[in-house]
């Protein structure tokens, strides 16, 4: 029984493969009008038909190998790049993964209709099993496209996450014994942690007595960010460095007051320049104007 069903299935996949190869052009022409190909290949319809044709060929070779439920079937690897490009282009265009999946599913009715008419014409055999085989194959294709679309998206997200962490936390040495971190963008707890750790490491490495946290580039301050600032200041103080917060904008100052957060124990300055001037003054360094001989800002 099992042997026979396997044999039947083998025959069925061969028939499907044969059908796909024979009707390649016809299917490609029909698919080229479907949303999936039409939206990706907007310029040339011939290009869409060609892409559809190579997809049909890949499906035929998968069917021939009999591994119609196998995503790792060798037949798919040939079109992986093309599908990645198509799925990627759809995703960049703002299509949700489910929408892409629906578009792949929309390829099925036209090819099934063609198969039924094809089989009805050639011999009187029941077309049911073959239609099921084709449906399974198309389901596998749909899964494959979904997988490539999602992995393409994940790759982008991973790369951007790493890039964000890299650009997010430069610790700059402004003067001997003075380091600064210009914070840019919204702070979340993971970034806050990285900022805190890299600042404290820099304090040890540079033997810095002053650390400046510049929040000019932070759009909003909520209680979480304020709490993080307080923590960083306290940790730097425990290590023997003085922490200065600079670049608090009027709106943020208002928010902090409204939230009732007490920044009383934290030294604040209007700008990074003021904070640097304060730190230099504390260090005993004086910047003198060469023309007048007068000292700079305190």
């Amino acid at each position: 029984m099992t042997d026979q069903s396997t044999a039947n299935r083998g025959t069925s996949t061969r028939i499907i493969s044969d059908f796909l190869q024979r009707r390649r052009e016809q299917i490609a022409q029909r698919w080229a009008d479907e949303a999936l190909f039409r939206t990706v290949f907007t310029v040339s319809r011939d290009e869409a038909a060609e892409a559809a044709g190579s997809l049909v060929e890949a499906l035929a070779s998968v069917a021939l190998s009999g591994r119609i439920e196998d995503l790792r079937a060798p037949g798919f690897t040939g079109v992986r790049e093309q599908l990645t490009r198509m799925a990627g282009s759809r995703a960049r265009g703002g299509a949700a993964p489910s929408q892409i999946a629906d578009e792949v599913a929309a390829l099925r009715p036209s090819i099934t209709d063609l198969l039924i008419t094809d089989l009805a014409g050639s011999d009187g055999e029941a077309s049911g099993p073959h239609v099921i085989t084709l449906t399974v194959l198309m389901g596998t294709l749909r899964l494959f496209v979904m997988e490539t679309a999602l992995s393409a998206g994940e790759e982008i997200i991973d790369r951007q996450r790493v890039q964000l962490l890299e650009v997010a936390t430069p610790v700059i040495k402004l003067w001997s014994g003075i380091v600064a971190v210009p914070l840019i963008g919204t702070l979340d707890s993971a970034r806050s942690q990285v900022v805190m750790e890299s600042l404290l490491e820099a304090i040890v490495d540079q033997q810095a007595k002053f650390a400046i946290l510049d929040i000019t580039g932070v759009p909003t301050v909520d209680s979480l960010v304020a709490q993080h600032l307080m923590k960083t200041v306290a940790a730097a103080r425990l290590m023997g460095a003085e922490c200065i917060v600079s670049g608090i904008r009027p709106a943020i100052a208002q928010t902090i007051v409204h939230l009732g957060i007490d920044l009383g124990s934290v030294i604040t300055r209007a700008s990074l320049a003021d904070a640097l001037a304060y730190a230099l003054h504390q260090e005993g360094a004086v910047i003198v104007d060469r023309a007048t001989g007068a000292g700079g800002p305190r």
Binding site: M196, L200, A236, L238, M239
Partner: peptide, 24 residues
Amino acid sequence: GMRPAVAITLVELGLTLPGLRTAL
């Protein structure tokens, strides 16, 4: 000479030791 990890731990524990003087 407190290490960064130690400082972070103490702060997370809420022990900011306000009266204590510190040095690098």
